[in-house]
Structure formats: structure tokens, C-alpha cells
């Protein structure tokens, strides 16, 4: 890929940001914030840590955006690489807080019994998936986080983890297979209540 300005909106935003355009920085924040947050949350399991690390990711991006070069690598891969490194730093500093506490009654105050049940289903799903993810390899976890939580494309994920696209698809398939077994092993009879969001028309 040439180093000339392209038509990709992210590429244009990044180029303008590299020239110091404040609006472009804000647009990059808007575009990537939730993806970065979900990716970090999926890996840390703690919303507070995810908020803090997400903020650090953007500050780090600000510091080093001029070092990013368009040489065929998507900007998102570069940005998620920063997020990955900060998560590694985070885990080095403190032990992992695995899951969101389920006894947060304050969130459910004023909700109907049906809403409470749905909320608990989601929290249980998150809990079970986080536990099941522990059974995956680091690379599988990384691919699942980038594909499922961050919503990166196969190509972007491949660039971020330094693999070919076919390898990412294979890793993804293998991880889902393993998760299915692990989620089954963690099943407590509530599994049917979790799935309907996806199986119901």
C-alpha cells in the first residue's frame, strides 16, 4: 500500500490527527472508544479497570500517533496492540479481578421481575464465558477478544496478532469448539435462558 492519502475514512482521520487536527483526534476517540472498552473489559473482567485502561490507550495513542506509518497495516491493529500491551502491564501490576460481582443489587432497584431475570441471565452469561475463556490458549483468547468484543475484521485481527487470515479463522473455530465444551461443563440449567436472545426470531 502506498503512503499517499487514501479514501478510507479512518486513514484520513489518522493523517489529519498526525498533522495535529484536534477534531480528528476526537473523532478517532468516538469511533474506537467502545470497541477498545469492550475488548479490555472482555480480557480483564472488570469495568473500572476497563475504563482506566481505555483512557490510557487513547493517551498513549496521542503520544505516539506520529510514529504510525501506513504500510499496509490497519490503524485499528496498531491501536489494539497498544491496548493489549497496556493490559499486559495491568496484569503485571495487580492480580486479575476475574468477574463482575453478581450481587450488585443497586443496579436492579426498581426493575420488574422479568427485567431482573434478564439482567441476571446476562450477568451469568458473562460470568460463565469469562470462566470458560480461561481454558483457551493465549492466542485463542486474543483472537476471540478482538473478533467478539472489539468487532475487528478477520484481516484486522490477523494484522494485530501477526497471523494469516486463514489462521485466524481456524483459531476462532477451534476456540468456539473448546468454549462450547467448557460452557457445557459450566452449565447449571440456566443455559437455555441465555441462548434465546440468539435463537428466537
Amino acid at each position: 500500500m502506498s503512503d499517499a492519502p487514501g479514501t478510507d475514512p479512518v486513514e484520513n482521520l489518522v493523517r489529519r490527527a498526525q498533522d495535529g487536527d484536534a477534531t480528528s483526534f476526537a473523532e478517532l476517540y468516538e469511533r474506537f472508544h467502545d470497541k477498545i472498552f469492550r475488548y479490555i473489559y472482555f480480557k480483564t473482567g472488570n469495568p473500572n479497570d476497563a475504563e482506566d485502561i481505555t483512557e490510557d490507550v487513547f493517551l498513549r495513542m496521542l503520544e505516539s500517533i506520529n510514529s504510525f506509518r501506513w504500510k499496509g497495516h490497519p490503524f485499528s491493529s496498531w491501536l489494539f496492540r497498544i491496548a493489549h500491551n497496556l493490559i499486559v502491564d495491568h496484569f503485571r501490576k495487580r492480580s486479575r479481578q476475574k468477574n463482575t460481582p453478581l450481587d450488585d443489587a443497586g443496579d436492579l432497584a426498581g426493575a420488574t421481575s422479568h427485567e431482573i431475570e434478564a439482567e441476571l441471565d446476562v450477568k451469568l452469561a458473562i460470568e460463565r464465558v469469562h470462566l470458560a475463556m480461561e481454558g483457551l490458549t493465549d492466542l485463542q483468547k486474543e483472537v476471540m477478544s478482538l473478533r467478539f468484543a472489539a468487532g475487528l475484521s478477520v484481516r484486522e485481527t490477523a494484522e494485530a496478532v501477526g497471523k494469516r487470515e486463514n489462521a485466524v479463522k481456524a483459531l476462532q473455530h477451534a476456540a468456539i469448539k473448546k468454549l462450547r465444551v467448557l460452557l457445557g461443563a459450566l452449565g447449571d440449567g440456566t443455559q437455555d435462558r441465555i441462548v434465546p436472545n440468539w435463537s428466537a426470531e
Partner: peptide, 9 residues
């Protein structure tokens, strides 16, 4: 299930 957990929060 994984998609739900990954995007619910």
C-alpha cells in the same frame, strides 16, 4: 453466548 458476554457491557 460468547457474543452476548462480549457485547453486553
Amino acid at each position: 453466548t460468547t457474543l452476548l458476554a462480549a457485547t453486553a457491557v
